[in-house]
């Protein structure tokens, strides 16, 4: 799919701004709100140890437990918004971590295969690949009506190929492209990092999505 330079720039700006904002909120939640709550939690533990009245001690203990749960919620929300492993450990570990969450949320098992050696790619490229994979997996959970799916990462010297397959219900690609902004966004996102996204599907036979990214 070809896009005009101006449209390309606007799309790139919107997507990048959105990603930066998501990352900022995730960081603020983790490093700001999360840390403040942790300080409150340790303070609450200190008060609990100092209080002698049994009723009050129990009440403070309950509040401490509630704070602990909230801290965990904040941490998980931050990780869901922007996985920190993407920048620290790379695309593959981040995807492995996401797949664990995906299976435990939707009950769909995903077989992840890796061929070749992972090379370092820019943060912009890795977040784009991650988001496109996330969209493909979300579509499987929502429409495919299947128990399992697979993802293959194939690293070559000149390119990275990611293939996401399921043997679910499948769909008519032309009709879906007119209705779904999600599929168009996957193609658009890949175009913006000079990659490609090919969607193949047949009703009753499942779907295959191939994403490629040139490696320089």
């Amino acid at each position: 799919m070809e896009t005009q330079p101006a449209k390309n720039n606007i799309s790139s700006y919107i997507i990048q701004s959105q990603e930066e904002e998501i990352k900022r909120i995730a960081l603020e939640l983790h490093e700001g709100v999360g840390q403040t709550l942790y300080s409150l939690y340790t303070g609450m533990q200190f008060i609990e140890a100092a209080v002698n009245l049994p009723d009050l001690k129990g009440y403070v203990g309950d509040m401490g437990q509630m704070l602990e749960k909230t801290i965990q919620e904040i941490r998980l929300l931050a990780v869901e918004l922007h996985p920190p492993t993407l920048a620290t450990l790379g695309l593959l570990p981040a995807m492995k971590s996401y797949l664990k969450l995906y299976t435990s949320t939707y009950g769909i098992t995903v077989d992840l295969q890796n061929e070749g050696v992972e090379v370092q790619i820019s943060e912009r490229e890795s977040i784009t690949l991650f988001r496109v994979c996330q969209e493909a997996l979300a579509n499987i959970a929502r429409y495919a009506d299947t128990m399992s799916a697979s993802i293959l990462f194939h690293w070559e010297p000149s390119q990275l190929l990611i293939s996401i397959k399921d043997q679910g219900e499948g769909f008519d690609v032309d009709t879906a492209m007119k209705k779904s902004t999600g599929l168009a966004a996957m193609i658009e996102r890949m175009c913006l990092i000079n990659g490609t996204c090919k969607i193949n599907s047949k009703i009753g036979e499942g779907t295959s999505i191939e994403i490629t990214l040139p490696l320089y």
Partner: peptide, 13 residues
């Protein structure tokens, strides 16, 4: 209709 429910875990809330 399938066994997916066995693997599904949701967070409180």
């Amino acid at each position: 209709s399938n066994e997916k429910y066995k693997r599904i875990t949701v967070r409180y809330g």
